[in-house]
Design a protein around this nucleic acid. Structure first.
Lengths: 216, 216
DNA sequence: GCCTGTGAAGCTATTCACAGCT
DNA sequence: AGCTGTGAATAGCTTCACAGGC
């Protein structure tokens, strides 16, 4: 389809495409059939030029004086973001955060499903939480090998995270979303996103304080 | 102290300083008194040049052929990041995610404390979770006004998020960490960080798939 | 007139590369 | 010899500004 364009799309653009799609779905639900780049920009809190630039990587239906067709745009962004048959994700670590993630994603996005969870607590084994089956940690490799899972969420304590990451990669996982408060080492070719809450919160605290100082 | 340098520090640098500090604390716990930039870089998964560049904004003790003194570096980063008397944070939304955040931050960082939580569920009012008192949502402005809280975490459903943000800003909050899956509008001068799990997960899924494709 | 798509400019962040120090 | 601190170069991202279309 639009193969080569996709090779070079940046992470930030993919992030925003994900956001645009949700905003558009929501907007379409409200009866709007078309959007202008400045309207979508307003919803997403970015500039209109940014929206148009981002949309260059979707196989865009083009546009008229009415702007973009919401429905077509959603379809085209989906063609870029989602795997044709949907994508399966594993969750490792079913503590407070892991459960929050399960409950949040349960059936929320059609293209993505968390289909297996793992925890070192044996009492969770066999339980089904928000439609997702929990397995003992020891079965990680085995369960992943028999599945179509290509990405995983790591929500375990810092001390366990690197070991888990190694095992995930060995089992064929090529994308990791890491919530553990420690940077992970993964081989070239494995995509890694580190979402460190401590970093986020300390950063917000810093700039909040600086803002106050600026005002005075 | 090092006032003007701080005006221009980027968000990314502050993020990494937060990370460096934790890695250093951990390292010092293991008996290392000194680090080289390439060692810290290895721990943080960045380049040595990046580390040195980031450290330019701390009032650095300088360095010798032994590298940086871990203890001093921690102290200097703390002088940049933390408010002198510690910083208080509010949490809005005590659902699954909110509880995960409370349990995670409970006593973890000395410079930061989540001192008030709010939820629209009246049955939570008055309860204390991980040392943090829950208030009914209606008391948000009142409680914040009588406090030193300058930043807040938003962990409510999308539909409530903008209203909460407006009330937080009106009550004097100058930094918001937003976990709701919707971009928030805040006035100039209020720092906003949007941590959207759907965006993160869809992005990881996309690049995991692309990685697989690259390999084939 | 007001939109989109996009080359070019402008900005920000990262890395290079080397002077200066021990 | 091997480190830090930093000007200069590079790479990456965003915005400008305008040609072309309805």
């Amino acid at each position: 389809m639009n193969g080569d364009k996709l090779r070079s799309v940046s992470e930030k653009t993919i992030n925003r495409l994900s956001l645009y799609r949700r905003l558009l779905e929501n907007r379409f639900g409200k009866g709007h059939e078309h959007v202008f780049s400045h309207e979508l920009a307003e919803l997403a809190c970015v500039t209109p030029a940014q929206v148009r630039r981002d949309l260059m990587c979707v196989d865009n239906s083009g546009s008229t004086s009415r702007g973009y067709s919401v429905q077509e745009l959603v379809r085209e962004i989906t063609a870029v973001l989602d795997a044709p048959g949907g994508q399966r994700i594993a969750l490792v670590g079913v503590g407070n955060l892991g459960r929050a993630i399960l409950s949040y994603f349960s059936g929320r996005r059609p293209g993505i499903a968390i289909t297996a969870a793992f925890d070192s607590d044996p009492s969770l084994a066999g339980r089904v939480i928000n439609g997702c089956r929990c397995h003992p940690m020891s079965e990680l490799s085995e369960v992943l090998r028999g599945s179509e899972i290509g990405a995983a969420i790591v929500a375990v304590p810092a001390s366990a995270a690197q070991d888990i990451a190694d095992r995930l990669v060995a089992a064929g996982v090529r994308g990791i979303l890491n919530f553990a408060p420690v940077p992970l080492k993964v081989p070239e070719g494995v995509f890694l996103e580190h979402r460190d809450m401590t970093m986020s919160l300390e950063t917000v605290a810093f700039f909040a304080r600086r803002s106050l100082g600026d005002a005075e």
